[in-house]
Simulated assay, not measured.
Amino acid sequence: LGRCVERADMTSRLVATASLSAGSDAPWTTTLRACGAHEAFLRTYRGLETERGAAEFLMLDRLFPRSVVFSLNRAEQCLVNLESSDPRAGFQNEAQRLLGRMRAELEYRSLSELMTDLPTEMERLQRTCALATEAVTRRYFAGAEAMSWTGVTH
């Protein structure tokens, strides 16, 4: 769960940074490499590297394990696995609701619409990841005592 939320968050940060240098494909190559996605991207898009293609692959690809949508979907599955019962309607788990809504918003919006203001969209995603992390902490770790380092004892 933590890995998936962190991956969605970090990928969104890299995508936002690459989108700020619009007009050049060089930042996208670097971003794809930073996400461990360059080789998979080249195979999927048959070597045609474009800003739009790279953004689509990193954000929306349902099969690439490091894409935002894949990560959010897997995080939702992790939360389902943690729950003891499956509600018939709605979601009692705030983290699942937040992540599911963000995933659906990304999946069902056109890429053109997302690309118009990619840094703002990625900032929204980062806020959602932070809120989901807080919700997971409240739900599963609220009663846990904080650990602190006291040094090495002999």
Results as ranks from 00 to 15, higher is better:
R74A: 13
S67L: 08
E105Y: 08
A89D: 10
V80Y: 14
S84E: 15
Q96F: 10
G53N: 04
N73S: 13
E51K: 12
A26Y: 08
L20Q: 12
E51I: 05
F57V: 07
A95T: 05
C35Q: 06
M59W: 08
F70W: 15
S84H: 14
S21I: 12
R66E: 10
E94R: 15
Q77V: 13
E49C: 11
R43D: 13
L60T: 02
S12H: 13
L60D: 03
R101G: 03
T31V: 15
G47T: 03
R74P: 01
A89W: 11
R33H: 06
Y45W: 05
Q96T: 05
A55D: 00
G100L: 03
P87V: 06
L72R: 01
L82A: 13
E83D: 12
E94I: 11
D86C: 10
A40N: 09
F41E: 00
F91R: 12
S19V: 03
Q92P: 06
L32W: 01
R43S: 10
S19H: 12
H38G: 03
S12Y: 12
E49A: 05
W28C: 02
E51G: 09
P65Y: 09
R62K: 08
L14Q: 14
D25G: 01
F70K: 04
S85P: 02
Y45M: 06
R74C: 02
Y45F: 11
F57L: 00
L72P: 06
E76W: 02
F64E: 01
G90N: 06
T50E: 10
A37M: 00
R97V: 04
R43E: 11
F70N: 05
T17G: 11
M102N: 03
Q96D: 06
N93T: 14
R74N: 13
N81Q: 13
P27D: 03
N73D: 14
Q77W: 05
G53Q: 05
E56S: 12
V69Q: 04
L99R: 01
L32E: 00
F41W: 10
L14C: 14
L20C: 09
R33P: 00
P27K: 07
E49Y: 01
R97N: 06
S85F: 14
L72Q: 04
F57E: 00
L72T: 00
Q77N: 14
P27R: 04
A16C: 13
R103M: 14
L58A: 05
S67R: 04
E83Y: 02
L42H: 04
A54M: 06
G53I: 02
S85M: 10
R103W: 09
A18R: 00
S21A: 10
R88F: 07
L98S: 04
S84M: 14
E83P: 04
A55E: 01
D25S: 07
F70L: 11
E56Y: 07
P87G: 08
V68M: 10
L60N: 07
D25N: 04
